[in-house]
Every structure is written in C-alpha cells, then in structure tokens.
Write a protein that binds this DNA or RNA. Structure first.
Lengths: 209, 209, 209, 209
DNA sequence: GATGAATGAGATTTCATTCAT
DNA sequence: TATGAATGAAATCTCATTCAT
C-alpha cells in the first residue's frame, strides 16, 4: 500500500524478463494456494529469484495481483465487443455459443488470477464494488443485445445480463476448482438455456409444428 | 488444524449461551471484514468475552466457521425439498418464483457466512470439492424438476441446474457485497429467465397477437 | 506461589479421600509426562474431579509436587539411619547391599516424584541448593560409615559419599526412564564397587593368602 | 515440532555469525533460567537480534537446544577414546585422573547445555532412551578398560561403567547447580574411589608394610 | 465440598517488507 | 540489478488460576 511499484521505471530487456518470471511464478502459486495462502517466499522460489528482487518490481503482493488482473482484463475486456446480434434462430444460438466459448477460454486461461482476485475481493469490501463494475462491462454488452432482440419482455435486462455473467463465472469456478472439466456439452447447455431464456430461442430441433 | 474442543463436551445452559454469543459475533465480524481479515481478537471483543473462552469452544477460527456453515447448511438444505413440480404456465412460474425467493432469503440471512466460506474455500483446494458437492444437493432437486417437466430437450439437466444455482449464488454475492440490494424485480427477472430457459415458459402475458 | 494451600484446613474423611485421589493422579501424570508437561487438567481428569477442587486442596501445581516430595522424603529419610557399620569383609558387603537395595526400592517407588522433582529443580536455581541439601542427609550417613571404617585414606568422605548417592540416583534415572530394569545383578555390582572403593572390600572370593 | 529451517540453508559468513550469536545467547539464558523458563524472547534479547531472525535459523527452542547438544556431543564424544589402559598402580591412577579431569572440564564447559538437556529430557519420555544411549558411548570405553584390567571380577562391567558416568554427571550437577565448586580434591577422591572399586587400586601411599 | 466456565498473561510462530552489501 | 539476512508487528493458541453457582 505504501511504496512505489517499480513498474514506473523504464525496464531494460533483462528487467522485463525478470518481471515476467515473477508474474508467471505468481500465477503458478496462486493456482496452488490462492491469494492469501500464497507467500512471497513461494513466488520468488518458483521464479528462482530473491525477496529483494520482488520488491524491485512490485510494491507488494497486492500490486502484483493487480498487474495480473490488468493483463487478464485486456483479454476479458475483449468480450465486451465480441458479441454480435443474437436472433432467436439457429444463427443466434451460434453467435451466443461462440461468445460463451470465448468467455470460457478467457476464464480458463486466467483461472488462477480470477481465483486470487476472488480471494482478495472477499477480504476487501472496497474492492467488491470494483469487481461488480468490472463484471458490469461484459454484462452491459449482453444487456444491449437482449434489448435489441426484443425478447426481453418482462425481464430487467441489466439484472439478467449480470446474472448470466455471474452464472458463467461461478459455474467455471465450481467446476474447475473442484477439478472437474468444463466440457463443450456443458457450454452448449448453458448457451441453450440463455438463448431460450433471454432471446426467444425455441426448443431446439422442434422440426414439425 | 485439528478441531475438536467444545464439540466433545456436553454443554450446560451457560455454555450454550456463550457459544451462541461467539457464533453471532463471528457473523458480525465476518460481515465486516471477511474471513481472513477477521481476527479472533475482534470476535471475542464483539462477544464481550475472552480469548481463552474462544478456544474453549472452538479449536480455531476455521472450526468456528465450519460450525456456522453447518448451521447455514441446515437452512439451505431445506431448499432441496421445497421445489414442487414446475409447469410451463403461470403456476409453474409462481412455484419457481417462491423457490427463488426462498433461496434469496436464506442467502441473505447467511450472507456473512457464505462470504467467509468463499474466502476460505479460495485458499484451500481441498474444500473446493466440498463446496461443489454442497451446491450439488440443491442443484439435484432442480435438475429433477427439469427432467420431469419435459422441456429440457437439448440440455444437460445437471449442468444447467448447477449453473442456475451458481447464478443465484454469485448474483447475490456481486450485488450484496457491492452494497446493492437484491430487489423483488430482479428476482422476478431471474425467475422468468430460468422458467423460459428450462421449463418452456412462454413470454409472459403475451395475450393478444 | 500466591494463595493458601487448603492443606491447612482440617479435613474430614471425604476431604482426605479427594486429596489422596489428586496425589495419586499426579503421580500417574508426572510419570507419563514429567512436571512441566503435566497439565492440571490432566491431573483432575485422572482423578475424576474438577479444576476447582484441585485448588481447594493445593494452592498450585508446585504445592502439590512439594506434598508428594514430602511423602517421598519420609521414606527416603529412613535411609539416613538404616546403614549400619560396614566392614571390609563379607558382612560389610551384605550390610551395604541391603542398604543399596533399600535405596533402590525407595527410588523405584517414588520414581515419578523424583522425575518431576528433577524437572522442577532444573528450572529453579533456588531449589537446586535444597536438592543438594536433601541428598546431603543420606550422604552424611554414608560418609560417617566411611570414616568409621578407616579405609577412607586419601578420600574426602563427604565428596565420596555425595558421589555415591549421586551415582545411585542417576543410575536409576537413566535405566528406568529408558525403560530398562534395575536388576539385582546390577545392584550387586554397584555394591561391590562401592565396597571396594570406600570400605576396603577385597576382590570377592580371594580365598587364599 | 518439525525443525529444519536453517539446517537446510547454506550459510554465508554473516549467517554463521548470527547463528553463533544465538547459540551463545542461548547458553547464557539456559544457564540463568533452565530450558523451560527460558523464553525465545530472552535469547534474542541477549543476542541483540530479533524474534524473526531466531526462526530463520532454528525452527523452535528445542531445535536450538538440539544444535547445542550436538556441539557438546562432539566434545563429550572425545572422551570415548581418550582413556588409556588403567593399571592398578600409580600410573593407572594418573591415567584415570586425567580422564576424570577431562570429563569435568567438558561438563563444566557445557553445563548450561546439560542442564537444559536434562530439563527437556524430563518432559519427553522419548528422549530418555536417547540420553541413555549417549551416556552409553562414554560408558563403553570405560567398561572396556575394566575388563582389560582383569580386576572386574564379580562386577558387571557395563553396569559399573554406566554407574561411574552417572556418578560423575550427577555429582557435577548437584555441586554446580547448587553453586558449589568441583575442586581438584573432590576429583582426586572420586578417582581414587573408582580406581579401587574397579581397577584394583590399593590404598594410596600405604608405603610400608 | 464440588463444579466447570471464564480469564488473560504470555509463549510460540509467521511472513510481508526493508536494508545493507 | 540482484541478493538474502534481518526485522517486528500481528496472529494463533495454551494453561494455571479464579470465580460464580
């Protein structure tokens, strides 16, 4: 909280490499133990560097996590703009499905960061609002599509979109932290549920009628 | 790490009262600071008792949290059996809605416990599986109703039910920890979404046309 | 150190019984864990009584140990006067042997107390002098016999006698705390050594000459 | 209870110095208060270092004591091989006397360690056997000389040797902890006693006759 | 006489962070 | 740039002793 992260300094090639080693090591350790249980000692051991070096690049443990969250944020932020219009037909389902897949990929890639983040957020009331806001970015994109689709009658699109993001997030958390995979079939099911729930998607392959 | 003191001892009236005071105080403190930031010292101060007394009843902070989780579990467990058949019509929506409301009430009542629990689970890989299993109980009840309703075509009912529970859980988390209310309107929206998504619920009151 | 041992109070039959239970229980616990590691809790559990009762009879843990030591002291003190004149012949050996045997019996009977006592003495410089003085009583008796025997030329009888007591004490300690028995043969050997060393005892059965 | 930190790490010059400071400080504190009463806090104060530093080098108080015991063990172990053949004449007495003197020097040098060790052993049944085994090393050397001298008839050399070591040990303990010196005269007396008792030593300077 | 709940001083231990080299 | 020894605030936990019933 106090010091200055060295992030301000212009880094030479070697410096960048060391910083990268620390970030990667942190991912590994956060994956293993979460944020609180992760000791700076563990991180520098995995990075094969020293305590002193750590504080050359980050002002403290939280600073490092924020750097990782920022990295993750760039990838996750891409979700804001990658969802096209979602119709009630097969095309709409496909559109939604690819977006869900993208979300899942991003989540899995940064799972340790998200885990650590959740861990930190739980201890820091102030951060909770931020987290809500962050999820909000993605949710807004979705809410827009719901309104646009015209099938959101009787539904508060903001709340619904938030809920969908919450669902995707927590679903991945539960499955992955318990060591169970998030397979394509599960993502199909979630997609279908959301498609029907918010975009007027019909029962799939209800051929006759 | 062990955890056993008080559990073994048969408690008299006074003992029970003191234990209750500690559990309640912990709820308060966990709500304020989360699990990790909560110090045993804070808890005993709120409970107006002493450090030593704490360890008379719980072997450590985690032991106390587990006791609270067990209490919460009884209330949450009631949700397993409180969801009746859900049809695609208005009645079905009502049934689902009351269940969602019940979930929301339980969640809000034990919000601090759930927050603390999440906090702890994040640091303890072993517990993650347990948490998944616990959520599974409620999810199974829902999955059963989905299958029974016959509108789950193209959906893996287990995954979908899990996802709904995940959604309700995380949605409450996001809103409440950010200090925003979970109002009836939002619950209506979630209900509608799920009703359409899993139980063939139509657009509400789409009378004419 | 502070309070008043209730020992002052005149005890009724029931009171005596409870006190006895506590003393016996303490012997058991001291035997198992030594003085420092013995918790008052252990003692009252073995005695099937309560914390409060303990302090009704003893002002603290040390007080109880002193009571046990006093008991042991009566038995050990008998050694002061039970050693008759020790000649250089077979009779002298017999006299010495019976005294050594008596010492051994007393020691083994109060082994837990002696162990606890040693434990306490180690932590309390002030008590060390007392312990020395106590051992001195027995040693003086022995020193007297050495002088009297006329075979102590070139030997400081006080130091020698002290050393013999030290030897008997520590030898028992080493053997018994290590779980090995102190058999008659070993006592015979020690007796012979001392008999030759201080009382002019010859090689046994040096018949001729 | 584990015990490992510093042992693993390779120490630089500074590290060694700090460790030495801690070991020396512990000797001082153990001498003043014994093992149980010695607080880690006291040790670091004497060593003019910090609490945290202590745990950088030792995993706990017991670990430190074991390190000291190991050091003392090297010195004491030298006694195993420093006793030459002991005849029944003046030369034999001299040989024995120098060995006794060596024992006394070693003991006095490590008195605080031995005191602490005794203190710890009293609380830990498991360690008692170890202590017995350690004493055994020195005792075996002595037993060998007894057998070799041919004057051990009627004596179990192992028991006798053990007893002599026990005597030397406890005699020093009693005297030193009580603040009384172990003077040369006392050591002469003990030597004479053992020489006569186990090696056929005659009455000293019984010139005529 | 007896009980066991309550106390709180004090002991051990951890670990994020600083600093001298 | 890098190192790792040193720091010390804070956290956990124990247990002899007191006290209300």
């Amino acid at each position: 909280m106090t010091g200055e992260p060295a992030s301000k300094r212009a880094l030479r090639t070697q410096g960048r490499k060391t910083m990268r080693k620390l970030l990667d090591a942190a991912m590994v350790v956060f994956a293993r133990r979460g944020y609180h249980a992760a000791r700076v000692d563990d991180i520098v051991k995995v990075a094969r560097t020293s305590h002193g070096t750590f504080y050359l690049y980050f002002s403290n443990k939280e600073d490092l996590l924020r750097a990782l969250v920022a990295e993750a944020g760039e990838v996750v932020g891409a979700l804001d703009s990658s969802l096209g219009p979602v119709g009630s037909g097969q095309d709409g389902w496909q559109e939604l499905r690819q977006w869900v897949g993208q979300f899942s990929d991003a989540w899995q890639r940064y799972a340790p960061v998200l885990r650590a983040w959740t861990d930190l957020v739980m201890s820091d009331t102030e951060l909770s609002a931020q987290a809500h806001a962050a999820a909000g970015g993605v949710a807004r994109a979705l809410a827009g599509r719901v309104v646009e689709s015209g099938h959101g009658a009787g539904i508060d699109p903001t709340a619904a979109a938030e809920a969908v993001v919450a669902m995707l997030d927590r679903f991945h958390q539960l499955r992955l932290f318990a060591g169970e995979p998030v397979d394509a079939g599960a993502l199909d099911s979630l997609t279908t549920m959301v498609h029907r729930g918010l975009f007027g998607g019909g029962a799939p392959a209800r051929p006759a009628r």
